[in-house]
């Protein structure tokens, strides 16, 4: 007993550095952020004024906050459909016997966008969307659909979809890659058995592939949904929340409050809300993930 106790103490000493790091780098900032959200302060002035829950009340009355929430949700939904849904379909096609020998080529092509820096991607898509010289309107004009030609990023109704579309272009290939890896782990015998039983390819996709990669689908969903609520750089580079406030997301709203409007307290409030949203989503995921394991 005494020996195990001692080992326990040694073990504790060994995890202590990691524990300290997590405490100081993860948990302390969360607590400090919460504390800061109760004060009116900015980065260059010394004093802080206590305002209590004022910023929280203001946030829930702020129409921009709801625009941002709506845009983040839109981001999450579209990303789920395109990156997770589309990723699975593309992966399944690439895994098909007929196409498999071209797979390395397509895999590389689809994956390339996700390794390009977001600043480059943003500038490139700004040009692609440009109403005068851009590729999108050029193609529309060339196929005789000039009435569809549009100022994609300049119109407050289409701007958010234009920004979301860029993220899909960039990350669907990444998701495809994850699903490919998962699919390659499925034993071939399942498919052979299904074939002997006369199952069509569609049937074996639904009854073998999907159940077998369930864990990866969950991981993919979590990555995209949480990513959608933390999105910042795509919007910052392409529209910075404009035109007007139509493409504002929680991340850009936080940045604007902190570094343009000198309201660090309000920014901290938004940060706390982002934390609550992503924490809730993670908890839901962890619960779903566990139930998945139990079925196995």
């Amino acid at each position: 007993m005494k020996e195990t106790y001692r080992n326990g103490r040694t073990a504790f000493l060994f995890i202590l550095p990691a524990l300290l790091l997590i405490l100081f780098i993860v948990f302390l900032p969360i607590v400090l952020n919460l504390y800061n959200s109760f004060f009116r302060w900015n980065s260059f002035e010394a004093g802080k004024t206590f305002v209590g829950f004022d910023y929280y009340i203001r946030l829930f009355k702020d129409p921009v906050f709801f625009t941002a929430l709506k845009n983040n949700s839109l981001y999450a939904i579209i990303s789920l459909l395109c990156q997770v849904g589309g990723g699975i379909i593309i992966a399944a096609i690439l895994e098909d016997k007929l196409i498999r020998r071209f797979q390395p080529f397509f895999r590389t092509v689809f994956f390339i966008p996700s390794v390009i820096s977001i600043a480059v991607v943003g500038l490139m898509w700004q040009l692609i969307y440009n109403p005068e010289i851009g590729l999108v309107n050029g193609v529309l004009n060339a196929i005789g659909q000039s009435e569809w030609a549009h100022s994609w990023l300049g119109d407050s109704k289409t701007a958010i979809y234009a920004v979301v579309a860029v993220s899909q272009w960039q990350y669907t290939g990444y998701m495809t890659m994850l699903f490919l890896i998962a699919m390659q782990k499925i034993p071939m015998e399942y498919y052979e058995a299904a074939m002997i039983d006369g199952a069509s390819k569609i049937n074996s996709f639904f009854h073998i592939t999907l159940p077998q990669i369930k864990e990866m689908i969950l991981v993919g969903c979590v990555i995209t949904v949480i990513g959608a609520f933390k999105v910042f750089d795509e919007v910052y580079v392409m529209t910075f929340g404009g035109p007007g406030r139509s493409t504002e997301v929680l991340g850009t709203m936080l940045y604007r409050s902190a570094f343009r409007n000198d309201e660090m307290g309000y920014a901290s409030t938004i940060g706390t809300i982002i934390f609550i949203i992503t924490l809730t989503l993670s908890l839901i995921q962890m619960k779903l993930g566990k139930s998945g394991q139990e079925v196995d």
Binding site: G241, P243, G244, N261
Partner: peptide, 20 residues
């Protein structure tokens, strides 16, 4: 003030596209 400027800046685009 930065906050007043921010309201002007973000709304002027909407003034020009006719939505405000």
């Amino acid at each position: 003030h930065a906050k007043v400027a921010d309201v002007y800046l973000s709304n002027i685009q909407l003034l020009l596209d006719g939505s405000k």
